[in-house]
Design a protein around this nucleic acid. Structure first.
Length: 654
RNA sequence: GGGGGCGUAGCUCAGUUGGAUAGAGCAUCAGCCUUCUAAGCUGAGGGUCACAGGUUCGAUUCCUGUCGCCCCUACCA
């Protein structure tokens, strides 16, 4: 609704500018600094002042005059040096909110064609940690944002099941632990241990072992070769370990309401010759060269001038094919990126991996034809890769690959949706029993390291959050059934975690702190959930006592609404609540899911304010009571809609 | 050395493409539960927007320089 008005107003001003001054401008609207200035502020006069060499105030006056006759607007004022401040007709505005209730208000897809969002992408060789949570929650929320505005989105979770990290754990099982296929199968099916946790420790052990005995790195090379070839016991082990851990990762993410459409696997990129095809293309185009001397001798490399500009030094070149003939991750990623845009001329085979409880099917790539009827995957118009900012160099290489192959439009449509890492606060390290040097203690944060086994596992954190939430729930609702309390605690825990990961903007390093993450007060997910629960309680209790809600559409006409919404607090609340889609649109434009989180918090805060200032059920005036009830219901719906964009559920009680 | 990011209240962070009196949470202090649940609300204190220049009607925002911190610069990803 708000967006509609914004569009009307900005195009009206654009028309005025064209008519009066013969100029074409794009009018951006602002929110006035103070609510008393009105609902919309137009700064266009400042923009034109320079070009027209006239005082901004004068221009504003002349532009504003053209707006005044609009039915949705009650007044247009020129303020300050040249702002045009617009006040909306409150009754009309609220009336149309009541009338459009329930009708979907899609503001139009941002992109024509399919959008692929790739996120999570955890190496399937150990348990997920909090850094992976940030990736998945950021990616999943961005997907929900895009879908909310009507975009067609496909979610892919790329599985690097043939890379060095998997190879290291397989080598550890085989060479260090002397375990075979049957032993590993037994470990995976053992209900008394967590296979991904076991691999977490094993990965740290083998990494330390390599450091002490570099000759053992031969194991890695051997294993990588076997996995790439797809034959022998090492390859078999790789498959078993990878699949088992992928399933555990999916379960972890599902706890946080994160779902995927497709698991594209690196093994198929190799076995279906995706890489071979891409390799030929890259060679033909001269995108990569075979190095005969220097430190990269016998490797196929991409010269840094292609992704770093002309002055890139020779030694900054990126190895695509190693001297032993195996492909690096980047090489496979170029092939994958080409496939995402439908540029490779090849496709995967697919089979269902599993079904989510809501019936949604998750597919995985295979190298053999299968039964079943997979949807059409790939062929996107735009691709978002949710990958941490430390890998921006590699993402540049991938895009440079596309560009060298003359796929410029697709290179431009390849977006590295980057975010900063999740590190640990020194205080949290101490709590975890991690020894810190004097230098470390002075640092603002400590980087986690999978190789050192240093970090907080995702499931441990989720468990701890649930435990903390459960204590609160039991305290408040001792009468409720245990299973139900557990569900509520889980919803609160997930709300807290998702909000925590979303409240920071993407390029801010999160210094993870248990104390902060476990907080359910202030700017947190549970705060927002609590506001929604309170709104629900009012409506529920009212219905319990009065049997049903008033017929708002009949009881509340525009004239009455105009009168009741002279109350500034009520008006500001409904206005803010009506901006939820606008908030999502802005957040997509800026690429910041944090903006949606912030909006949710502000709306919850405004409602909590209202809650304290107004008695809804006890309101004696029948019409005013209807206004308050409608407002409660409307805010609740907008709050729940926003929470669902954030992937946060509403508990039945708190 | 090269590339990128950051520096805003005691702490953690927002700040809408340059705009009106720089905001929030936490922490601290002082208040508010016989009410639709206090996971809440009200109020107070707390700022040289790292520093110095520049661009202009106007700079936390853009440019240059300085200082400090972080990441990348692997035949790991």
């Amino acid at each position: 609704m708000f967006q509609e008005i914004e569009r009307t107003v900005s195009s009206a001003i654009e028309r005025e500018v064209a008519q009066q001054f013969g100029l074409t401008v794009k009018v951006a609207l602002e929110q006035p600094k103070q609510t008393s200035f009105g609902e919309l502020a137009i700064p266009t006069a400042f923009q034109l002042a320079r070009q027209l060499r006239r005082p901004p105030r004068e221009i504003a006056q002349s532009l504003g005059a053209g707006l005044a006759h609009q039915a949705d607007i009650t007044s247009v004022e020129i303020a300050g040096n040249g702002y045009i401040n617009v006040r909306l007709n409150r009754g009309r505005y609220v009336r149309s909110l009541i009338e459009t209730r329930g009708k979907a208000e899609l503001s139009g897809a941002e992109t024509a064609g399919k959008i692929i969002v790739e996120h999570t992408n955890i190496n399937p060789n150990k348990a997920a940690h909090i850094g992976h949570l940030r990736n998945a929650i950021l990616g999943d929320t961005f997907v929900r944002m895009l879908r909310r505005l009507g975009n067609a989105v496909e979610v892919q979770n790329y599985i690097d099941n043939t890379g060095v990290q998997v190879a290291d754990v397989v080598a550890a099982f085989h060479y260090l632990e002397k375990k075979g296929v049957d032993d590993i199968r037994a470990l995976i099916s053992d209900a008394n241990l967590r296979f991904d946790y076991l691999c977490w420790d094993l990965y740290a052990r083998v990494s330390a072992y390599y450091k002490e005995d570099p000759a053992a790195l031969e194991w890695r090379a051997e294993t990588l070769h076997a996995i790439e070839a797809g034959h022998g016991e090492l390859a078999e082990l790789g498959k078993i370990v990878g699949d088992a851990i992928v399933e555990l990762h999916l379960q972890t993410m599902y706890r946080l309401c994160v779902q995927y459409d497709l698991l594209p696997r690196e093994s198929e990129i190799l076995h279906l010759k995706f890489w071979t095809t891409a390799f030929e293309l890259l060679k033909q185009r001269g995108a990569i060269h075979f190095e005969t001397q220097g430190k990269n001798a016998n490797c196929w490399v991409m010269h840094s001038s292609q992704f770093r500009g002309e002055d890139g030094a020779e030694e900054d070149s990126k190895v695509i094919v190693r001297s032993n003939g195996t492909v690096t991750y980047v090489g496979k990623d170029i092939a994958y990126q080409l496939w995402k845009f439908g540029l490779l001329g090849r496709d995967f085979f697919y089979r269902p991996w599993s079904s989510y409880p809501d019936g949604h099917e998750l597919w995985v790539t295979t190298d053999q034809p299968n039964d079943g009827n997979p949807p059409h995957f790939g062929g996107a118009a735009k691709v978002f890769n949710v990958i941490d900012s430390r890998q921006s160099y590699l993402q540049d290489v991938v895009v440079a690959g596309l560009r060298t192959l003359d796929f410029n439009a697709q290179a431009d449509a390849s977006i590295h949706f980057s975010y900063e890492m999740v590190a640990l606060s020194p205080r949290t390290c101490v709590e975890l029993g991690i020894a810190l040097s004097e230098d470390d203690k002075r640092k603002p944060y400590i980087e986690v390291s999978g190789r050192k086994g240093l970090g907080v596992k995702a499931d441990d954190l989720i468990d701890k959050l649930i435990e903390t939430a459960l204590a609160e729930v039991e305290d408040r609702h001792p009468e409720a059934e245990a299973a139900e309390r557990q569900d509520v605690a889980k919803q609160i825990a997930v709300g807290a975690l998702r909000y925590f990961m979303l409240k920071f903007t993407r390029n801010s390093v999160i210094a993870f702190d248990f104390h902060e993450a476990l907080s359910f007060e202030g700017e947190t997910g549970p705060y927002v959930q609590y506001a929604a629960v309170r709104a629900g309680n009012i409506l529920r209790k009212f219905v319990e006592r009065a049997s049903c809600l008033p017929q708002f559409e009949q009881v509340l006409n525009g004239e009455a609404l105009n009168r009741w919404f002279e109350d500034e607090d009520l008006w500001q609340l409904v206005l803010l609540a009506s901006k939820s889609d606008s908030a999502v649109a802005r957040a997509i434009a800026s690429g910041e899911p944090a903006h949606v989180a912030k909006y949710a918090f502000q709306l919850a805060q405004a409602f909590n304010n209202f809650y304290h200032g107004h008695q809804v059920i006890a309101e004696p005036d029948e019409q005013r009571r209807a206004v308050l009830l409608w407002l409660t219901q409307y805010v609740r719906e907008q709050l729940l809609g926003t929470l669902s964009v954030l992937g946060i559920e509403q508990p039945p009680y708190m």
